[in-house]
Design a protein around this nucleic acid. Structure first.
Lengths: 356, 356
DNA sequence: TTGTACGCGTTATCAC
DNA sequence: GTGATAACGCGTACAA
């Protein structure tokens, strides 16, 4: 029985299963079955029930169902605050891709921000332990852990995206950063470059390690020493990639033996770096070649157009969701924890043969 | 009693209120009170209960509470698919700002995509009528409506953001688009520009109308006819702002009496437009001045740096949440439906006096 | 195939 | 101030 009261100011509550049952002339449980397992009910009664439900505009109550079956249909995505910064377009792409895949599977997406304060950790843990969410996709290297509660021990399926956490047992969807940047470096070597500047991200994290390793591997392959690359950036307190690029440009100006090619770990850094470098009178790519990471659409419209390594966010999101849902449905462990999605170098005019 | 079974493969379920009650030696209802209304319980027993809860790592079940009190603590944000495109950085900023404000109020944020298909509408309606969400913030001009169910009649507090929907009774948080673009146009007039190109957004929507009106108002103020501005863009099927800019640049090339200033309704359009215009041999700002909308950080690093009208997304998000929560708590109507947050023109080198 | 009865975990209403 | 008890709306054994 709908609790609708005609008194204004009262909470409205839509039609209940009981209302549908009464209108269709059947028991509540029959309605329940007709809606959930349409197969286990007489075709004729099912039609009666469907008609009644439609007539009343009935919508099942998700919380009541969730409580009863002991499961929610909400997945949370854990976003570190630092990811929000910059032009990388990563967040919208990831969210749209993941949400789309989730909805097809009957799930909803909830956002959880993981900042550096304990409150945000506690909040995420409440979501996990309070039964609000059924699984999590994390884009953070650190799992929330407060007061003995830990996201890892919440009994919740978790999939890591962007960061490889297969070593701690989490299914992970990552790109082949190291390989991609190695190939990009090889391209630069092939053009004749012998001295490099590497713009590190804000943290000594997985990506930084992998990407720098890719550069080193390429150098080794060409018989060059590690000293052929100079590191810049990597400041923990800089979240805006743009700032890193500016600082790095200043660093570059102060450098003695100048590199002829720059490898940036994000498009933001590359864009602001290039801007300042050009205002210092240097020409791209004549004086300096640049390649970066992220694949932001805006790179195509820089002057000169910027070479960048595109990360297939759409596919990563789909894969992450697929892994998560399979972990939820059949609780079997995935065959391989580490799932690599290949990224792709988009070559543009910012790379050329060195002048001297 | 926690249903933990030591059998592997069984669903884990954390400690219940009953477990806390037993450990503290009190009744379940007392635990409930101690946690919800700490004032209405003896200080000493409250401490016992808190200790027991902490020891067990108890987290209240959100669905059970929601079912009982008939309210959820989830807010949904309705994002139109078209908003995801481009470099405008609008989505991440909005999400972060809104989520932060919501969490402070004890709410969580759920994402709902509104595409052009009926399925996405139905999905949003299920969320609303199924009791999953307690309120909605919409960034879409159209409210989902399928099979007689309509989001407007879901009995759910709704706040519109970016788009002014005060005319249909929805509290709205908008920027002063028209005024801001009028002032920007005035600045261009002051520099000596008399002929303009206006790059319209993908739809004849609220923003387009407002912004174009701002241009016209400025022209009128200067005694110029409406024909002083040429419209370009505004194609419905183009979602990527970058493409609009490219098309518009081609349109510009074919134009007879060439404008000397461009007003773009998004940074994406302006960036790609400028890129192609420059590759056609024209110089910015000598041959053509440009100003655009969005305030993307990347504009500062274009060549030349791009003047843009910054929309204070952070403040808009906070205001939207404040409106929504006040509508939830005290169900009184807000004094004013239309809430205007002032945007701000950031002047950069892309604007100058016309050559001829 | 359909109906009856109970329980999911919590909060609110009542007595005590 | 505290404890027993009845809901909240739905799913699912079990019986019919």
């Amino acid at each position: 029985m709908s609790k609708n009261k005609d008194v204004l100011g009262e909470e409205q509550s839509g039609p209940l299963m009981a209302d549908v049952a009464r209108l269709a002339g059947v028991a509540i449980s029959t309605v329940s079955r007709a809606l959930a397992n349409p197969g286990r009910v007489n075709e004729k009664t099912r039609q009666k029930i469907d008609a009644a439900a439609k007539q009343l505009g009935y919508t099942p109550n998700a919380m009541a169902r969730g409580l009863r079956v002991g499961k929610s249909n909400i997945i949370m995505i854990v976003l570190p605050g630092s990811l929000y910064y910059g032009a990388s377009q990563v967040i919208p792409q990831v969210l749209q891709s993941i949400n789309k895949s989730l909805i097809q599977g009957g799930y909803n997406l909830m956002i959880a921000n993981l900042d550096r304060d304990e409150a945000s950790e506690r909040h995420i843990l409440d979501l996990a332990f309070g039964g609000t969410v059924r699984g999590a996709i994390i884009l953070s290297s650190k799992l929330p852990e407060v007061d003995g509660r830990s996201l890892a021990s919440a009994g919740l399926p978790i999939v890591s995206m962007l960061l490889d956490m297969s070593e701690v047992g989490l299914p992970s969807v990552v790109t082949n950063d190291r390989e991609a940047i190695r190939e990009a470096t090889n391209d630069l070597l092939g053009l004749g470059h012998r001295r490099f500047l590497y713009l590190a991200g804000p943290q000594e994290n997985y990506h930084d390690v992998e990407r720098f390793a890719g550069v080193i591997e390429a150098l080794r392959g060409a018989g060059l020493p590690e000293s052929a690359v100079v590191r810049s950036g990597g400041r923990l307190d800089y979240q805006q990639g743009f700032n890193i690029g500016l600082e790095a440009a200043d660093d570059f100006g102060a450098l003695g033996d100048k590199p002829t090619a720059v490898i940036a770990t994000s498009d933001d850094m590359a864009i602001s770096f290039m801007s300042r470098i050009q205002s210092m009178g240097l020409k791209i790519p004549e004086d300096l070649s640049i390649v970066s990471f992220d694949g932001s659409p805006v790179c195509a419209f820089c002057s000169p157009p910027l070479s960048t390594i595109e990360q297939p966010m759409e596919e990563m999101g789909q894969t992450a969701v697929a892994l998560l849902l399979s972990a939820i449905d059949r609780s079997d462990k995935p065959r391989q924890l580490r799932n690599v999605i290949r990224s792709r170098l988009i070559v543009r005019a910012s790379m050329a043969t060195p002048k001297a």
